[in-house]
Amino acid sequence: MPLVKVENLVKHFPVRMNFIKALFTRERKKVHAVNGVNFSIEEGETLGLVGESGSGKTTMGRLVLRLEEPTKGRIFFAGREITSLSAEEMRRLRREMQIIFQDPLASLNPYMRIGEAIRHPLVIHGIGENKRKQREMVLEMLERVNLRPAEEFYNRFPRQLSGGQRQRVVIARALITRPKFVVADEAVAMLDVSVRSQLLKLMVDLKREFNLTYLFITHDLATTKYICNRIAVMYLGRIVEEGSFRDIYTDPLHPYTKALISAVPEPDPKAMERKKKLIPEGEVPNPIDPPSGCPFHPRCPYVKEVCRTVPPELKEYSGDRKVACYLYD
């Protein structure tokens, strides 16, 4: 049984319109952020959700935790449907499902000492019998994420920390309740190269130690290799391809995935010269008015008539590989 499963998930956001205009238009515009997504994550697995800005990957992560209400579709956690749970039930469940955001400075209260920030979830969920016990748990966690000496870090404020240290605090706070499932939304994107790799390594180690299951959301294909078992590539609110990172890297199927892989700048000039460049023209269309049919068809070099009208379904290609493209029918 998968730990997390979503079925046919749809999320549309209404577009704000000024009042006068709204009086005279019947049609309400909406952003098609997520357009019918299915995936499941097994316990102990890391699924990488890769896409460019506007692909709907962040909305997807928020939907799974029900920080955002889906327009349609169902979400399962540990075999239980959570789509219609009450706010109170969800609050209790969040002990087991946590999220790490991109910008640590924005997700930490600047007036709260970091020890207290990490202790806060324990207070909310009533873990640890008293303050002293909770403090011990926090110190232990600070040690674990390499913020040493822990006693000293406990009393610091976020502004006294470097970017990498702050992200360690955010990770510590997410893991203090011992969750089963963690959504990491561009968790290392804002950090410098040398620090990014430290944090990635930490996340891999913690995963093993705490037996975590990650949904790792990123725009950067190259970082997924070190942490993900499987990768799902999103484009304009749909998953266009899914498979092991090995298959996605070496033999991408969907024309969009091919483009994405060929566009990644490699820190190796010779590899860059060898690489076939399949850069499509144009940019990602506006999700307010997505193209009919396959979302990639306006930029696709292999476009056929059917692509323009009916969106292809995400179908099994072989083994654990799936692709949404008529080329493989």
Binding site: V193, D220, D268, A271
Partner: peptide, 23 residues
Amino acid sequence: VALLESVPNTDINDMDLDYIEGY
């Protein structure tokens, strides 16, 4: 040397993730 080793690439034969300690 250390910086180059800590940059992620898409070579699946190179699975080591090195990093530079400290800040």
